[in-house]
């Protein structure tokens, strides 16, 4: 039996430090800061799911906020009906998973770039549904006073305890995703992204994997939504609209799509940074959008690819210099021969 090392020492130290900081955070932050940190974790869960669909399997999905909305509304509606959070949230996840499968089907029929529009349109439809079906969703007024759940007799009503719930869920689903990506499935997803036609000829069932990457991504959005509703206590259609779906995609891409920690960084940039740059107000999103454009031109792999992009440019430069040196040397040899 070979001893397979799961993580490098460096990686372990980094994770340990990050976990320590997240555990200590409640004692150092005020109410609003803790709320923001919880919200960030919720967004990280959703963005991790999108990263699976977009970054690992290479599909365009532009209805992630809509899926998150489905999760949030499912939990809110069920909890209002007196059903426990612990039953409502798995239901929300399953509904999102099934919706993801349903949306994945046209994905198989159409050329890849149509998928962006199909999912965008689907998100629009979801928002219309949230807004118009007042009997169920409360329409534009939304659903208010969503309670936070209890946990084995313990109440998670306080900000700190709910934060720890969100943190625990983030870690659990983060680890699950990491395990999935290490399994043969992860390799099949990557193959799907790199070269779907070649993948098919090696026996990869691209239909099944496409559907699964979509459905699992949607399920993660559902988890995020299920936590979002009790965290914010109040939901309405606005946060689940098209612009937030685009924002999710930007999070993944700016952080580094197809990199495990890409969405973590991306969500921080999209959510936490604006809080510190509040004086910029709406300008922040403008800068954010234009930065995404600039990054696609100069750093298409995202912020986490910076090191590799630099190494690549160094390698290219070295190769060029070597070429010049060789050319000079061979010219010298020829000169000598002549």
């Amino acid at each position: 039996m070979k001893n397979v090392k799961l993580l490098s020492t460096q990686h372990m130290v980094f994770l340990g430090l990050a976990l320590g900081a997240l555990l200590l955070a409640p004692s150092m932050l005020k109410t609003y800061g803790l709320y923001l940190l919880s919200l960030w974790l919720v967004y990280v869960i959703a963005a991790m799911g999108l990263n699976l669909t977009v970054g690992y399997a290479g599909l365009k999905s532009l209805c992630h906020a809509g899926f998150m909305g489905v999760g949030a509304y499912t939990v809110a509606i069920m909890m209002k009906a007196g059903i426990s959070f612990w039953i409502a949230s798995p239901v929300a996840i399953v509904i999102c998973f099934v919706l993801g499968l349903a949306i994945g089907f046209p994905a198989l029929r159409v050329q890849l770039h149509y998928l962006g529009f199909a999912t965008l349109g689907f998100n629009l439809l979801l928002v219309l549904f949230f807004r118009n079906e007042e009997w169920l969703t409360g329409g534009t007024f939304g659903i208010q006073n969503i309670k936070r759940p209890g946990f084995f007799g313990m109440t998670l009503e306080s900000n700190t305890s709910f934060y720890f719930l969100v943190l625990a869920v983030t870690i659990v689903f983060g680890v699950l995703l990491a395990l999935l990506l290490r399994s043969p499935w992860g390799r099949a997803f990557a193959a799907l992204r790199d070269n779907p036609i070649r993948a098919e000829s090696t026996g990869v069932n691209i239909t099944a994997y496409t559907l699964m990457s979509f459905a699992i991504g949607a399920a993660y959005a559902g988890i995020a939504g299920a936590l979002f509703a009790p965290l914010v206590n109040f939901i309405e259609p606005a946060p689940f609209g098209i612009s937030n779906s685009l924002l999710f995609l930007m999070m993944v891409v700016i952080g580094g799509s197809g990199r495990f920690y890409g969405p973590v960084l991306g969500a921080a940039i999209a959510l936490l940074l604006p809080e510190y740059l509040r004086f910029l107000k709406d300008w922040y999103l403008a800068v954010f959008g234009f930065t995404a454009v600039a990054m696609m031109i100069w750093l298409p792999g995202g912020l986490l690819s910076m090191k590799e992009a630099w190494q690549l440019s160094q390698a290219k430069r070295a190769a060029k210099q070597k070429q010049i040196a060789e050319a000079a040397a061979s010219a010298g040899v020829k000169g000598a021969a002549a």
Binding site: L112, W283, Y284, G289, M295, M296
Partner: peptide
Amino acid sequence: GSGVVSVVVATLGLSIGLKSFVKA
């Protein structure tokens, strides 16, 4: 040469940027 995907993301970014720019 950087592929359809990057162009899609870039124009999406442009869309967010222009909207927010006008709003701000």
